[in-house]
Amino acid sequence: MSMEAQTLRPPSRLLLLLEGRALQELGAFYATLPLLNLTATGDGHPVLVLPGLVTSDVSTKPLRSFLEGRGYAVSGWGLGRNYGLREGVQDGMLDLVRKITDEQGRKLSIVGWSLGGLYARQLAKLLPDHVRSVITLGSPFAANPKATNAWRVYEFVSGERADDAHTQSGFGGALSETPPVPTTAIFSRTDGVCAWQGCMEKPGSHSENIEVYGSHCGLGHHPAVVYAVADRLAQPEGAWQPFDRSGWRSLVFPNPNR
């Protein structure tokens, strides 16, 4: 981890207070569904959606329902609330990935929100032959574990130190290492929970960043995020291209490298 990543601080209290925007973003999601339903139809490949810290599959229901409507075989993680890598969680996710790909006969894409995105990256490193692509939503894989406003909650519910979460030597290695599959990191500079700099991927031949304007708690249903997720999943397997933010998209998706 770089010195800059180690010294990142959590978002300000003002940004944390502004996380109430998530409710407005949920309303915007339902209001824009007619437009979102104009996005490309999927090819039917399986998609696994992983929830964030202390949340469950209930939190990802809007996104999963939308993706099902676009033609994907969508699954929640089915492991209750996400309280960290407690006993059985790691094996449960690995078994689920194998089960889905065996049943579908195809690789799956994994979309992970916040802590769920950390899991998504590690699963792709451990099971690259099973994973088609990874999309993370506000996941702090490249920062000091305490560069979030949720690290105390993580320690309380998981029973482990936040600093230990970024070693993960037994679960795919270093979190900041890019998975060996097409990887997209979606983030917001006004994230009130995680330092946005720590949610950014190293751009490469099969990795990218997409920036949106929004909260952390609304990333799973923010209309711009939903559009970007649908766009990324619709790409043909083996023909990955970076996200196109030309035209009207430049108004919705700012340049992440500015």
Rank of each mutant, 00 (worst) to 15 (best):
H166Q: 15
K146V: 02
L127P: 03
E25P: 06
T32M: 13
M3T: 11
T39F: 05
Y213S: 10
T190H: 07
F171A: 10
G84N: 01
V54H: 00
T41D: 11
L175I: 10
G44W: 01
G76H: 07
S65H: 12
G92M: 01
P254V: 09
S205P: 09
V157K: 07
A165Y: 15
R98V: 12
V111K: 08
I135R: 05
V252N: 04
A185D: 06
D91A: 14
Q24P: 01
Y30T: 09
Y30N: 05
A150G: 05
E208H: 08
T167E: 15
R70Y: 01
S207Q: 09
P145G: 03
T148P: 06
G112C: 09
R64Y: 00
T190W: 05
T101Q: 08
T183S: 14
Y72T: 02
R152Q: 14
N37D: 12
R249Q: 10
S12Y: 04
A124M: 02
R13P: 04
A228L: 04
G92V: 00
S188W: 04
S176M: 13
Q197D: 13
D95H: 13
L23Y: 12
S65N: 12
L115A: 08
F29I: 05
Q241A: 14
I210R: 07
R86C: 03
N255H: 09
D163I: 12
V131L: 04
A120P: 08
Y30V: 10
Q6A: 15
R249T: 06
S205N: 11
G44T: 05
A22H: 15
V111Y: 06
G159T: 06
K99D: 15
V193S: 01
S250A: 15
K125M: 02
A185K: 04
H221W: 15
L108G: 02
L17N: 08
R152M: 13
L8K: 05
D102I: 10
G138M: 02
A150P: 08
A185G: 07
R232W: 11
Y119G: 11
V49T: 10
S12W: 02
H216N: 00
R64N: 03
S188Y: 06
L118N: 04
A224K: 10
M93K: 12
L118V: 05
S207G: 14
R13M: 14
A124L: 02
F187I: 02
A147F: 00
H166V: 15
P145F: 06
K202V: 15
Y119R: 07
V134M: 01
A124Q: 04
A162D: 09
W248P: 14
Q241P: 01
K99T: 14
S205L: 12
G69M: 04
K202H: 11
A165K: 13
M1T: 13
S109W: 00
S176R: 14
R232I: 05
F29R: 02
V225E: 00
G44I: 06
Y83L: 15
F66C: 01
L23D: 06
V193H: 00
G192P: 08
